[in-house]
Amino acid sequence: MSDVKKVRIFMTGVGGQGTLTATTLLAQTVLAQGLPVTSGEIHGMAQRGGVVESTVLIGCKSPKIGLGEADILIGFEPMETMRALPYLKQGGLVVSSIEFMPPLAVAMGKQECPAIDDIKKAVSACTDKAYYMANQTIGLEAGAVQSGNVAMLGAVCAAGDLPFGPEALEAAIKANLPEKIQAVNLKALELGVAALNA
């Protein structure tokens, strides 16, 4: 256990996006590699529109990630990426959506929605290892909007910061997802890897 490289992954999105499904799938991928994994939901209102935050930790005993401790930040919604930046360690990896799903406060006009350029600027102050994807568009191209999350997981696996690559995620999709949604998610994985390398 002591020779396992510790990787702390912080995931954030809004309810209804499938953040927790993505968390479970990533944890199953880690497990299948024979690596110790802990995952947890930090807090979240899983109803549509609420903030959902979760963690996947490889080789760590605690499921918690403190400020400045996350090696990888996956933001399924850009405003949530910006909100979660304090958890990212300096120089960590960010994979973020560029497509907004504004929270209720923004939709009701009580809060301003930042521009993507502002979010990119905030991220670049923390790290130069950042990738941005139109995950909902990619999901739709693959056949289901929620599969955009798998595209982002594929990009994270291809970025080289995890102790495994996209083929491990592919195997986990085949082993854990219902057969009727496997093809869509495998296509999303392929598109996510391609988007990272574009």
Rank of each mutant, 00 (worst) to 15 (best):
K180H: 14
L140G: 05
I74T: 07
M82C: 02
I9A: 07
V7W: 04
A142S: 11
L20G: 07
E41I: 04
P36D: 13
G15A: 10
C126Y: 01
C60A: 15
E141H: 10
P86D: 10
V94R: 05
A32G: 13
G18M: 09
D3S: 13
Y87D: 02
A27H: 02
V51N: 09
D118G: 04
P163H: 08
F10P: 00
M152A: 09
A175D: 14
S39F: 12
G91W: 08
N135G: 02
A175E: 13
V52K: 04
P78V: 10
S2I: 12
T19C: 15
M79C: 07
A105T: 14
K129H: 15
A115Y: 08
L20Q: 14
K89Y: 02
A195V: 00
K187I: 00
S147H: 03
A105C: 01
I42W: 01
P36F: 02
A46Q: 14
V156R: 03
K121D: 13
K174H: 00
Q136S: 13
L88W: 04
D161W: 11
A70V: 09
G15Q: 08
L140C: 08
M133P: 01
G68N: 12
G68H: 07
M1P: 12
K121C: 01
P86G: 10
Q33S: 01
L153D: 02
A183L: 07
E190K: 15
L85D: 04
I138L: 15
I98H: 02
Q17D: 04
A194P: 03
V95D: 07
A144M: 08
L169P: 09
G109Q: 13
A151C: 05
H43I: 07
S147L: 03
T12H: 00
A172F: 09
G91V: 07
Y132I: 03
S124C: 04
L196Y: 12
A151V: 02
A122C: 05
C126R: 15
I74C: 04
Q182P: 01
C126H: 11
I173E: 02
S2R: 12
L153V: 05
V150W: 00
S62V: 02
V156A: 15
G50F: 04
V106E: 12
A27C: 03
L186W: 11
I42A: 08
K6S: 13
E99Y: 05
N176K: 15
I72Q: 04
K6P: 11
A46E: 14
Q146D: 00
L35I: 07
P102I: 06
L67D: 01
L153E: 04
E141M: 11
L140F: 00
A32Y: 00
V184Y: 02
P163S: 06
G18E: 06
D71Q: 05
T55Q: 03
V95Y: 08
M1W: 07
Q146N: 13
G91A: 08
D128G: 15
D128L: 12
